[in-house]
Design a protein around this nucleic acid. Structure first.
Length: 497
RNA sequence: GGGCCACUAGCUCAGUCGGUAGAGCACCGGACUUUUAAUCCGGGUGUCGCGGGUUCGAGUCCCGCGUGGCUCACCA
C-alpha cells in the first residue's frame, strides 16, 4: 500500500517491518482520504444482541451498530468481518458493487482491532448466519497495536492482569466474569435495600485501625501532620451508626490489609458488612444464606453451582453446627470438656504446635481451622467461636468461654463472619485491653484500643446482629474462579521495570 | 519471606546432544462476489526477560537479578 508521509513523499507501507509502524503509517492513509482515524460520535440503532435476538422483526431493516473489528475475511470483490460490541458479535457482509470502488478499497484498509460504525440491512447468509449487508461504514478509532491471536486468545496472566483492557477485548469469558460481578454486587444491594437496610459510607482513613485482626497500611496526612491507617474493616463505624439509631445499615466497601498476596488475598478487597438492631446471630444466619442464594440466583439463575469441580448446593437452609461439635466429629476430641493442658496435648497429637499458655478455646479454634474448615465443601454455619478469637462478639450466657459468633464456610473457606454484637461497654473495654496486651507482646495484628467506640457503646448499642462477607470470595465462588485476581479488574501487581 | 516452575516475533507455541532463529494467527503484496479458525500463492517482522560466566561457539550449560504463576507460612 502506498501512502503519503509528512513530507509529501510517497512511501510503501510494506517498508515498515514493524506492525505498529505499519498501522501508524495507515493514519496518513485515512487522513489523505479526508477521514479522521480517531473519529467522533456515532449513533447505533441496535446492539449485536438486539439484531440477533430480534432477527424475525429486523430482517430486511436498516440498522446501525458500532464495535471493534475482530476478524476479517476478504473474498476479492466481497468480504466479511466480525464486529464485537458489549452484547456480543455480529457479522458484516460488504460488496464492492454496493459500497463503490473507493469505499470498498478503504474497507480493505481496516485492520483487526479497529473500531468502526456500520450501517446496513439485516439478512441471513446462505450458511445461516445473521449478518448486516453493509451500505456504509465509518472509521471511529484506528488501533495502532495488533490484538492477540483470535483462536488462543491472550493467555499470559501477567499481561492479562496488567493490561486488563486487552484481556477484556479478546477473552469473552473474562467479560462474563466481570458482568457477573456487577450483577452480584447489585443483587446484594437489592436484597438488603428490600429488607430495610440503609447503605452508608464510612471513612476509609482511620486514626485507629479497628474491627479486625490484620496489619494495616499506614499513610500520612500533611496538613494535620498525622499518620492515618487505611481501614481494615468497616465494623466499628457501622456499629456507631446503630448507636445513632439508624437501626439497619450496610456498607459495600474497599478494605485494605497489608498482608501477603495469594490466590485468595489481594491487598485491597471488597467487603459487605451489615448491622441489624434488635437481631441476633440466628437472624444473621437466616439473612446470610438467603443473601447468598439471592445473589447466586441473580447471577446464575440457580442456587446449585459448580466450584472447581465440586457440586455445591447453596439452597437455604444451610446446616448449623457448633465449632466444638464439628471438631469433635472430625477429630474425636471434645475441647469443651477438657483442661487447657489436655487441649494443648490434643493439639500436639494432631501435629499442631500451640504456645504453652494456649487456652482450650485457642486450641479449639486452631484445631477447627487446621483439621475441619478445608473439608467443608457444602455451605455450613460453624457456630459459637471461642471468646479468645472473637473480641467484638457477645459472650454466650450459658458459657462465657464461647461467643454468639458464626462463620459461613463453603468450598473449604470462610465466606462470611457474623455475631451477636458485644454491646456491653465494660466487657468491650476489657476485651480491647486483652488485645492491647497481645499487641504489646508483639502481635501487630491484635486490635487497638478505640476509646471513642467504647464511648459510643456507653450511650447504648441495642442488641444487634452483624455480618461481614468477602464480596470477592463470593464472586469467586459464583463465577467458578480459582484466583481472586480473576474477579478483580486491576489486581495489585509489582510495577514492571 | 521459603520452595518449585515459567519467560523465544504483536499473540499462541516449537526449538533435539551447545553449531546460521522456527510454525500458526496477526501484518504486507497478489488471486478470489455468501465466508466464518475462509481458502490459495509470495514475504519472517526477533535485545531468545536482564546482567555476568564457561566455551572456538550459548535460546540451550553455570551464577546473579527481574517479573509472573503455583505452593507453604500469614490472613479474609
Amino acid at each position: 500500500m502506498l501512502i503519503m508521509d509528512e513530507l509529501g513523499e510517497t512511501v510503501d507501507v510494506a517498508t515498515f517491518v514493524d506492525e505498529t509502524d505499519q498501522r501508524r503509517a495507515k493514519l496518513d492513509y485515512w487522513r489523505s482520504r479526508g477521514v479522521d482515524p480517531f473519529g467522533s460520535r456515532f449513533v447505533a440503532t441496535h446492539s449485536s444482541a438486539d439484531i440477533i435476538e430480534g432477527f424475525r422483526d429486523l430482517e430486511g431493516q436498516q440498522v446501525s451498530i458500532a464495535g471493534r473489528v475482530m476478524a476479517f475475511r476478504g473474498h476479492g470483490k466481497a468480504s466479511f468481518f466480525d464486529l464485537a460490541d458489549l452484547a456480543g458479535r455480529i457479522q458484516v457482509y460488504a460488496k464492492r458493487d454496493v459500497l463503490g470502488e473507493e469505499h470498498y478499497e478503504m474497507l480493505g484498509q481496516v485492520d483487526i482491532g479497529d473500531i468502526v460504525g456500520v450501517e446496513g440491512e439485516v439478512f441471513r447468509t446462505r450458511r445461516g448466519e445473521i449478518s448486516i449487508a453493509l451500505s456504509s461504514f465509518r472509521m471511529l478509532s484506528k488501533a495502532l497495536r495488533s490484538l492477540p491471536e483470535k483462536w488462543h486468545g491472550l493467555k499470559d496472566v501477567d499481561i492479562r492482569y496488567r493490561q486488563r483492557y486487552v484481556d477484556l477485548i479478546v477473552n469473552p469469558e473474562v467479560r462474563g466474569t466481570f458482568i457477573s460481578r456487577t450483577r452480584i454486587v447489585s443483587a446484594i444491594r437489592t436484597f438488603l435495600d428490600s429488607r430495610g437496610f440503609l447503605e452508608v459510607e464510612t471513612p476509609s482513613m482511620h486514626a485507629i485501625a479497628g474491627g479486625a485482626t490484620a496489619r494495616p497500611f499506614i499513610t500520612h496526612h500533611n496538613a494535620l501532620d498525622m499518620d492515618l491507617y487505611l481501614r481494615i474493616a468497616t465494623e466499628l463505624h457501622l456499629k456507631r451508626l446503630i448507636v445513632g439509631g439508624l437501626e439497619r445499615v450496610y456498607e459495600i466497601g474497599r478494605i485494605f490489609r497489608n498482608e501477603g498476596i495469594s490466590t485468595r488475598h489481594n491487598p485491597e478487597f471488597t467487603s459487605v458488612e451489615l448491622y441489624q438492631a434488635y437481631a441476633d446471630y440466628h437472624d444473621m444466619m437466616e439473612l446470610t444464606e438467603n443473601l447468598v442464594a439471592y445473589a447466586s440466583q441473580a447471577a446464575l439463575g440457580t442456587t446449585r453451582i459448580t466450584y472447581q469441580g465440586s457440586e455445591i448446593d447453596l439452597t437455604p437452609p444451610w446446616p448449623r453446627v457448633t465449632m466444638a461439635e464439628a471438631v469433635k466429629q472430625r477429630t474425636g476430641v471434645d475441647f469443651i470438656s477438657i483442661s487447657d493442658d489436655e487441649a494443648q496435648a490434643a493439639c500436639s497429637e494432631m501435629g499442631l504446635d500451640m504456645p504453652a499458655d494456649a487456652t482450650r478455646g485457642a486450641c479449639l479454634s486452631e484445631a477447627y481451622e487446621e483439621k475441619v474448615e478445608a473439608g467443608l465443601i457444602q455451605p455450613t454455619f460453624i457456630m459459637d467461636y471461642p471468646i479468645e478469637v472473637s473480641p467484638l462478639a457477645k459472650k454466650r450466657s450459658d458459657n462465657p468461654e464461647l461467643t454468639y459468633r458464626f462463620e459461613a464456610v463453603c468450598a473449604g473457606r470462610e465466606l462470611a463472619n457474623a455475631f451477636s454484637e458485644l454491646n456491653d461497654p465494660i466487657d468491650q473495654r476489657e476485651r480491647f485491653l486483652a488485645q492491647v496486651a497481645q499487641r504489646e507482646r508483639g502481635d501487630d495484628e491484635a486490635h487497638m484500643m478505640d476509646d471513642d467506640f467504647i464511648t459510643a457503646l456507653e450511650y447504648g448499642l441495642p442488641p444487634t446482629g452483624g455480618m461481614g462477607l468477602g464480596v470477592d470470595r463470593l464472586i469467586m465462588l459464583l463465577t467458578d474462579s480459582a484466583s481472586i485476581r480473576d474477579v478483580i479488574l486491576f489486581p495489585l501487581m509489582r510495577p514492571k521495570e
